[in-house]
Each structure stands twice: as structure tokens, then as C-alpha cells.
């Protein structure tokens, strides 16, 4: 799972409705894999990314390249788009877990796949 996908996942345990995003990554194994960059797609994603959550997540993973706020000229800032591309589309979470900041539920990531299934009483 790439960080772009993590940026769109939230806790869905029954009754856990607030402060349930972003899920905190713990004990993760990361892998960088090169991917072709597509500026048009990145521009399109600028308004869709939860940027604050992305920056917070990255800092905890010791990824310090992203500026604290989206640059005003982000759409045509090549340097920024390259960093964004590397972070959200080339950084893969191979294993670890995601912990809900609210209810502390653990979602396990194995073989790059987050297990978002819940037990019956949690749905």
C-alpha cells in the first residue's frame, strides 16, 4: 500500500466517529519503488489529499521532505510535485500496523495489504 492510499483510510469501528483519521502507522517496513511521474494526475490530487494528515504521517516515519503547508504555486512547482510523487506514489508500506488515534483499534498490514475487516461486534 502506498501512502496515497493510507491518506484515504479511516477507522470504521462502530461508534468511532471522531478523531479516527489519520491512522497512525506503527512498526512499519517501508520500501521505495520508482514509478513514472504524471504531473496532471498530481495536480488533480492536490485538492483531494488530506495534506496536514500526510505531513504528520510522514514526520512520524522520518520522511521530512514535505513542506508544512502546500506551496501556493504547488500545481506548477516541479520540485514540490516531485517530492509529492515520491512520497505518495513511490513509498510503499510493506508491513506493520495502523492504529486508530481515537479507539486504538489496530489494523494489520501484511504483504502490503491493510486488513480493514472487523469482527462482528465491531461493525
Amino acid at each position: 500500500m502506498r501512502l496515497i492510499t493510507h491518506n484515504m483510510l479511516q477507522c470504521h469501528v462502530k461508534g468511532c466517529n471522531a478523531n479516527n483519521f489519520p491512522l497512525e502507522l506503527q512498526e512499519v517496513v517501508l520500501e521505495q519503488e520508482e514509478a513514472e511521474m504524471n504531473e496532471d494526475f498530481l495536480r488533480n490530487m492536490l485538492t483531494k489529499i488530506e495534506y496536514d494528515a500526510l505531513v504528520a504521517t510522514c514526520l512520524k516515519l522520518d520522511i521530512n521532505d514535505l513542506p508544512a503547508t502546500i506551496p501556493a504555486d504547488a500545481a506548477y512547482n516541479d520540485e514540490f510535485l516531485q517530492i509529492l510523487h515520491r512520497v505518495i506514489l513511490e513509498t510503499h508500506i510493506k508491513s506493520g500496523k495502523m492504529v486508530c488515534p481515537n479507539c486504538q483499534h489496530n489494523y494489520i498490514i501484511r504483504d502490503g495489504i491493510p486488513n480493514m475487516l472487523l469482527a462482528e461486534h465491531e461493525v
Partner: peptide, 9 residues
């Protein structure tokens, strides 16, 4: 091909 997967119901 790059594709992410989510195990979910």
C-alpha cells in the same frame, strides 16, 4: 502495474 489493495467487506 502499480495497484493497492484493501482487504474489506
Amino acid at each position: 502495474i502499480e495497484m493497492d489493495f484493501i482487504l474489506t467487506d
